[in-house]
Computed example of a mutant assay.
Amino acid sequence: MRIAFYGSSLLSSYWNGAATYYRGLLEAMARLGHDIVFFEPDAFNRQAHRDIDPPDWAEVVVYENTPGGVARVIARAAEADIVVKASGVGVFDDELLEGAIAAAREDALRIFWDVDAPATLAEIGNQPLHPLRRALPHLDMVLTYGGGPPVVAAYRALGARSCAPIYNAVDPATHHPVVPDPRFAGHLGFLGNRLPDREERVERFFLEPARRSPDQPFLLGGAGWESAALPANVRHVGHVFSRDHNAFNRTPLAVLNIARNSMASIGYSPATRVFEAAGAGACVITDAWEGLGLFLEPEMEILVARDGRDVEEHLLTLTPGEAAEIGERARRRVLSDHTYHQRASQLDRLLKDSFAERRERCPA
């Protein structure tokens, strides 16, 4: 089937944490025989920070960040069997959602793909006239990046016909062990952009432990931290291109995952970073959230911290040998249970079932 996908960016991970999720899942879908066209705006300086060239498994259309540019790519929704509007494009989101639904063929599937469902639900819950609320009756399906049963129930309560999580995973060809790189040496590494709904948790789980461990080197990657008041032992390396994620994850003693506020409160939302780091064989310390055990076994395949003191305790007792063993167990687990090939197979079944249901509702 031909899939028209309107998202933030496939080519760049700059201010775009969903990039590797899109790449892993859509490449796996292409390998299953689907024809992918990805539409992304020329916005937020992402095209100047590309991680990859346009791949051979998808057509990538970079459109002008103008009403005319948006109108031209919306018109192409009529070419597709499946039309997907992802959340968080960042520009013309409402116009893309409404326009793509209207332009889709009568027999095409219409899907909203929410890559930040907890935040979206908090935004639209009390706004019955929100464009997404108005669009839900016209959608065949809502897919989410995570959120599990609470998010599914919330979307169904708002009128979604169907809702299913398609979780992050690992692409073994992209995320795998590499030789440690001195550029990323440190005791604990954290990779994440500076976002308002995560900054307080970064302070609590990363910066406070760094201040209390002044003799240990901490490593911070991601955009937006240039103006932050960082402890002297925290080295900020700026935006880390996806080609360097393996080295960033593999080199420090451990790497830290910190969920955004909304995702931590809902749970069932493993970040791309968790699977990327596990695929590289890194020892991951994560903040605690509901549903973690569905993906990795706490204390065996991933270490869990309820607060910054727990992070410190892990770092005090963790040896390089133990870190390597935890990382290897995590790597074996994600290769066994959490690959993008497996996620794509799940998605492929969902789409085929939904397509059959749509034909029953809208016979030719």
Rank of each mutant, 00 (worst) to 15 (best):
residue 314 H to P: 03
residue 352 K to P: 04
residue 290 E to F: 04
residue 316 L to F: 08
residue 323 A to P: 04
residue 297 E to G: 01
residue 357 E to F: 02
residue 277 A to V: 10
residue 278 A to L: 07
residue 338 H to W: 14
residue 262 S to P: 00
residue 359 R to C: 13
residue 303 L to S: 04
residue 311 V to T: 02
residue 303 L to Y: 07
residue 329 R to V: 03
residue 280 A to F: 08
residue 329 R to M: 09
residue 281 G to S: 09
residue 343 R to D: 07
residue 276 E to F: 07
residue 256 L to C: 10
residue 349 R to S: 13
residue 265 S to G: 04
residue 330 A to M: 04
residue 288 A to P: 01
residue 317 T to L: 10
residue 318 L to W: 10
residue 340 Y to P: 06
residue 352 K to Q: 13
residue 347 L to D: 08
residue 297 E to R: 10
residue 329 R to H: 12
residue 346 Q to P: 03
residue 260 R to E: 14
residue 347 L to S: 09
residue 327 G to I: 03
residue 307 D to N: 15
residue 322 E to L: 12
residue 281 G to Q: 01
residue 278 A to F: 04
residue 309 R to W: 01
residue 266 I to H: 00
residue 317 T to P: 00
residue 272 T to N: 14
residue 304 V to G: 02
residue 337 D to T: 14
residue 328 E to R: 12
residue 320 P to G: 03
residue 347 L to C: 07
residue 323 A to G: 12
residue 329 R to G: 03
residue 284 V to G: 00
residue 337 D to H: 15
residue 257 N to V: 11
residue 328 E to A: 14
residue 317 T to M: 04
residue 284 V to T: 13
residue 292 L to P: 02
residue 354 S to D: 05
residue 344 A to Q: 07
residue 315 L to F: 06
residue 352 K to N: 13
residue 288 A to I: 04
residue 269 S to C: 14
residue 317 T to S: 09
residue 298 P to R: 05
residue 287 D to Q: 02
residue 300 M to P: 02
residue 288 A to C: 06
residue 260 R to T: 14
residue 256 L to E: 07
residue 295 F to V: 11
residue 303 L to H: 08
residue 285 I to V: 14
residue 288 A to S: 14
residue 259 A to Q: 15
residue 354 S to T: 12
residue 259 A to M: 11
residue 325 E to A: 15
residue 312 E to S: 12
residue 312 E to D: 06
residue 293 G to D: 15
residue 351 L to R: 07
residue 293 G to L: 01
residue 336 S to F: 04
residue 319 T to F: 05
residue 318 L to M: 06
residue 258 I to V: 15
residue 306 R to I: 06
residue 272 T to E: 12
residue 286 T to D: 04
